[in-house]
């Protein structure tokens, strides 16, 4: 019987999100870093071939045992295994190892490896000793199937299954210190009574707010009323005949600069060539340059202070 991938779209996107430990440079300048090129597979009902997901491992396409088997396995796990291996199977107070990254668990199909250890125990040099447990073969298989069902929910890139949501407070800075920094470094472009009025309420979450103010572009839901012209990158090209042409920068590399004038005309200019007239100068005005310059200057502490200050703007 063909494997039917059971991978949800969410899982695939998260797997694709940062590719893997072999993560490479991507020219990503977007708040959403999920690569457009990676398509999540639909769960097919037929066995016709489908596009291979970017990442797919056996544990993600495993057929899970029947609900009653999993329930039985969970009950036994809670009673006999949890103390050593932890409620989340990532290792417990009594020194049992993380089961979710265990080679035995990963290699096991339907309890043939896990069950053997439950039945006979395990002694490995340098590791805590596991005693044999008084469990029937059937029940040890149920435990194995339950472990597999938990692992099947793994996050991308080897991450553990999502646990309970923990509220983490990222607003730890000194708002007063942040205000001093803001007034010195930011207030020439931004105003807490103007463009940043109610910014904390508008962006909503402090992490998005911190990302947004450091990067100079909005995280989270886009603001339909945003004035995008404020971030427009402008270019002025001066020519050997004395003319100069200004407009919105389209593209620049070592060889070409192109812009769109305020009249809507597309212009491009060759650099490094004996053209007539010749480009004698290119001046780029990027409103976000001040944000880029900050990147090398900001300490974690100042960053947290400014975030704490901006969080007061509700």
């Amino acid at each position: 019987m063909p494997l039917i991938p059971r991978v949800s779209c969410v899982l695939c996107l998260s797997l694709g999100l940062a590719a893997c430990g072999q993560q490479e440079q991507v020219a990503s300048d977007a708040t959403d870093t999920s690569p457009a090129a990676i398509t999540a597979p639909a769960a097919p009902e037929s066995s016709s071939p489908q596009a291979i997901p970017f990442a797919i491992f056996p544990s993600q396409v495993r057929e899970l045992a029947a609900p009653e088997v999993l329930a039985r396995g969970e009950t036994i796990y809670e009673g006999l295994c949890r103390a050593c291996h932890g409620a989340d199977m990532r290792g417990g107070d009594q020194g049992g190892p993380n089961l979710l990254r265990s080679q035995i668990v990963l290699n096991d199909q339907h309890g043939e490896l896990i069950g053997e250890i439950i039945q006979n125990g395990r002694s490995t040099p340098g590791m805590p000793e596991m005693p044999p447990l008084q469990v029937s073969v059937q029940d040890s298989v149920a435990v194995a199937e339950y472990i597999h069902s938990v692992w099947a929910r793994q996050s991308g890139q080897g991450g553990p299954p999502p646990g309970e949501t923990v509220e983490l407070n990222i607003v730890v800075g000194d708002a007063a210190a942040g205000e001093i920094f803001f007034n010195a470094q930011c207030s020439s472009c931004h105003s807490v009574a103007g463009d940043l009025a109610d910014i904390a309420a508008r962006i909503g979450n402090p992490e998005n707010l911190q990302n947004s103010w450091v990067a100079g572009r909005r995280w989270g839901a886009p603001d339909p009323n945003a004035d995008t012209s404020r971030r427009e990158v402008r270019a002025t090209v001066t020519l050997s005949n004395g003319q100069s042409v200004s407009g919105r920068l389209n593209r620049r590399d070592d060889f070409i600069v192109s812009l769109t004038t305020d009249a809507g005309q597309y212009r491009s200019f060759t650099l490094h060539e004996n053209t007539d007239p010749r480009v004698t100068g290119v001046v780029i005005a990027d409103p976000l340059q001040a944000h880029r310059d900050l990147l090398s200057v900001l300490t974690n502490e100042i960053m947290h202070d400014v975030t704490a200050y901006l969080m007061t703007l509700e």
Binding site: A18, C20, G21, S28, D29, T31, T33, G86, R90, G91, N98, L100, R101, S155, G156, Q157, G158, G159, P160, G163, V166, L168, I170, E207, Q210, N211, V214, A215, G216, W219, L288, H291, R292, D293, L295, S296, M303
Partner: peptide, 27 residues
């Protein structure tokens, strides 16, 4: 990038999990 710890468990996370990353610019 700004790197946020999302899994403060003292046992550590697994794989490349336990964090959230925001790429905030390039200089």
């Amino acid at each position: 990038n700004i790197v946020y710890l999302t899994d403060p468990d003292p046992r550590g996370s697994m794989g490349l999990g336990g964090k959230r990353v925001a790429i905030v610019g390039t200089d």
